[in-house]
Amino acid sequence: MVAAENDERGTTERVLTLLGLLQQRRVWTGPELADRLRVTPRTVRRDVERLRTLGYPVHAEHGAGGGYRLGAGQELPPLLFDDEEAIATAVSLLVGADRTASGTGDAALRALTKLDRVLPARLRHEVRALAGAVESFGTGRAPVDPEALMTLARACRDEVEARFGYPSASGPHERRVEPYRLVASDRRWYLLAYDLDRDDWRTFRVDRMTDVATRTWRFRPRPAPDAVPYVQEGVASRAYPYRARFLVHATAETVRAQVPAAAALVRPHDSGHCEVLSGADNLDFVLMHVLLLGHSFEVLDPPELATRCRVLAQRLLTAGTTVPDTASRNPGSSPPGAHPA
């Protein structure tokens, strides 16, 4: 039986529920919506009119295969976001949709799909441009100016030069670049670009840029390095005074599951080995972390780290000889957990 129209959920909650249903499926018939909302078809029609008044483009089609359909709006509905808020939300969802390991990826992707359906054409185009220019590794990055991100994303998409102010040791300088990819790490947003003044590939922190703008010059894309590994390696070389490279006796897939993406770069070596590149404030620290992976490994770089391994190994052996050997002092005793034959 259909519930009374003065349902305790209230009109506002019911209208929001109706909006959610329209976002889940392309077409709903009036009777289907009435059944899901537990109201009459007449109330469904009134709630649809409320959504239209708020700016949501709900289309009604009659005949076989017809029903209610939520279209793309001519402008953002006033109950949701302004342009800046919509793009900022899309930026967060784009990065969240890549977090498959955390379990939030599917939910973020569904939310982004819903947002895409109701965005006005001008913003939907911008968000899709950003989607094609973003890659990520790690989670929990710091916020940046969404307008700067969108400007750089458009430049990546349209293959036009970009310029921005960027600090250096001698002070701020304008940089002219050919932008290729935006990469989101666990802490920062980076731009992978070809620096025209230095004639080489560079990575730039987006939060350090000022006056980001595009130029009218188009460029022909060069063969570019793989964005994520390039940024990972570049960040490690700048962030830490020491870098180390190891050959680990385990597959790259196994080690990647053990090491956060922002902590080390893992490269396949052969069917049973991988290379691990990591940085730290001191070599003992990075050595300890590789040791805790639980796999055999070899030091590839730097040479002094191999020497350090031998020093630490001798120190551990010496420490082990100071532990009392209770078994030798008590021949009749058994180690914990042992059972007589």
Results as ranks from 00 to 15, higher is better:
residue 271 S to K: 07
residue 286 V to M: 10
residue 299 V to W: 08
residue 294 G to F: 05
residue 268 P to A: 04
residue 294 G to H: 12
residue 267 R to L: 13
residue 301 D to K: 14
residue 316 L to Q: 03
residue 300 L to Q: 06
residue 307 T to L: 09
residue 312 L to D: 07
residue 257 A to P: 00
residue 240 Y to K: 05
residue 231 V to M: 08
residue 279 G to S: 05
residue 234 G to T: 14
residue 238 R to I: 02
residue 287 L to D: 05
residue 318 T to I: 05
residue 311 V to C: 04
residue 271 S to T: 10
residue 236 A to S: 14
residue 276 V to G: 02
residue 282 N to D: 15
residue 303 P to H: 08
residue 255 V to H: 04
residue 305 L to H: 07
residue 310 R to M: 03
residue 255 V to L: 03
residue 300 L to T: 09
residue 240 Y to W: 15
residue 269 H to W: 14
residue 275 E to H: 12
residue 251 T to I: 05
residue 280 A to K: 00
residue 245 R to D: 07
residue 310 R to W: 04
residue 285 F to K: 09
residue 311 V to F: 13
residue 285 F to H: 14
residue 278 S to T: 15
residue 247 L to G: 03
residue 273 H to K: 08
residue 289 H to M: 13
residue 269 H to P: 00
residue 279 G to V: 03
residue 277 L to H: 12
residue 282 N to R: 08
residue 267 R to S: 13
residue 250 A to I: 06
residue 302 P to W: 01
residue 231 V to H: 11
residue 271 S to E: 14
residue 308 R to E: 03
residue 277 L to S: 06
residue 271 S to L: 15
residue 293 L to V: 04
residue 255 V to R: 09
residue 276 V to A: 03
residue 254 T to W: 05
residue 314 Q to F: 05
residue 264 A to Y: 02
residue 233 E to C: 00
residue 305 L to S: 06
residue 254 T to K: 12
residue 251 T to P: 02
residue 251 T to V: 09
residue 286 V to L: 08
residue 318 T to D: 10
residue 240 Y to L: 02
residue 262 A to D: 15
residue 243 R to H: 10
residue 294 G to A: 02
residue 272 G to S: 11
residue 251 T to C: 07
